[in-house]
Computed example of a mutant assay.
Amino acid sequence: MVAQACRVWPYDESLALAAVAYAPPGQTAIGERALRLVIAMLDAQSSDVLAVHEREIGEDAAFALLEGGVLLDTARYDLAQGTRAFGVVLRSSAPGPSCPDGRFNDELTLYVREGRALRPVFASHMDFWTRVRGEPCSWARGQHLVTEEAAFTIGVERGRRHGFADLRVTADVARIETTDGDEDRLVRRRASRIVRYDGTRYDVDALENGFFWTQAPEDE
């Protein structure tokens, strides 16, 4: 077993949620495995499986899963009357490129129960970093370096589409400006976008692959 998370669901304490990632026999090289992720809803008393979803996760230079890399998100994602989603977060431990222009982590997927199945309805990374100006890996005297990092949160809106509530994705952005010989300057701001359900899942095109917060604000 590579990573796992399990807890009683606060929304309904008769149920438990579990997410387990494991590698097939013989696959041991971290960063090269074809992992299997099993998400399950269980009876909290008997541990009987009530609903399940399975998917494959391929590791590479940008994504590798270690112990502690699977987390459960049980915030109040009330998408419709009687329908609350829960989240599974995958946190990569891969080092990635040494000098990237940007990076992301903490992939969140929201699931809803439909009978014996758990269906994914939303997916996005939740943690981002980007280089705006300068070269952090080749520091030069007097260089002006600007980087930004963003952490996402999700709120449930009153508007609805195809029976499910709209979601507001808010980016809490920290802009860090560094000039040789001066103290860092930190500026914080927020940006947000609305995503809407298309009848199958939430259309996340508005998030610009997660980097919408680097763009000019737009009307919603």
Rank of each mutant, 00 (worst) to 15 (best):
H125P: 05
P136W: 07
S92W: 04
D101N: 15
G181Y: 12
T109R: 09
R141F: 10
E107S: 13
V89Q: 11
L66W: 02
D73H: 01
R84A: 13
A94V: 12
D166F: 07
E149P: 03
T109G: 04
A64Q: 14
A80Y: 07
I57L: 14
A94P: 01
R113P: 08
S93G: 15
P95F: 00
R103L: 15
V89G: 03
G159N: 04
M126N: 11
G159R: 08
A150V: 01
D78F: 01
L72S: 09
E148H: 12
E59H: 01
V156A: 04
A64P: 06
A150E: 00
A64G: 10
V146G: 03
D180A: 11
R158T: 15
E67C: 04
V89R: 07
L145G: 04
V169S: 02
V173K: 05
W139G: 03
E149F: 10
T147V: 14
R113L: 04
H144W: 08
T109N: 11
G58R: 15
R158I: 03
H162K: 12
G102L: 08
Y111H: 04
V146C: 01
D106T: 00
A64S: 13
L79M: 05
Q143N: 02
V112H: 03
E107R: 15
I154A: 03
E114P: 08
G82H: 14
A140G: 01
Q143W: 09
A75T: 01
G96L: 05
V156Y: 02
D184P: 08
R161H: 09
L66Y: 11
G102R: 15
R119F: 00
L110G: 08
R119T: 14
L66Q: 10
A80K: 01
E157M: 15
H125Q: 14
E148F: 02
I154C: 01
A75M: 00
T130I: 12
C99L: 09
A140H: 07
D184I: 03
V70Y: 00
N105Q: 06
G96F: 12
R133Q: 13
T147M: 10
C99R: 05
A150K: 06
A171N: 02
R175V: 11
A61C: 00
H125T: 06
G96Q: 08
A75D: 13
F86M: 07
I176C: 02
A174Q: 13
N105V: 04
L72K: 08
F63W: 04
F128C: 06
D172T: 10
E148M: 13
P120M: 10
G181C: 10
D73A: 10
R103H: 09
E107G: 13
I176K: 00
Q81R: 12
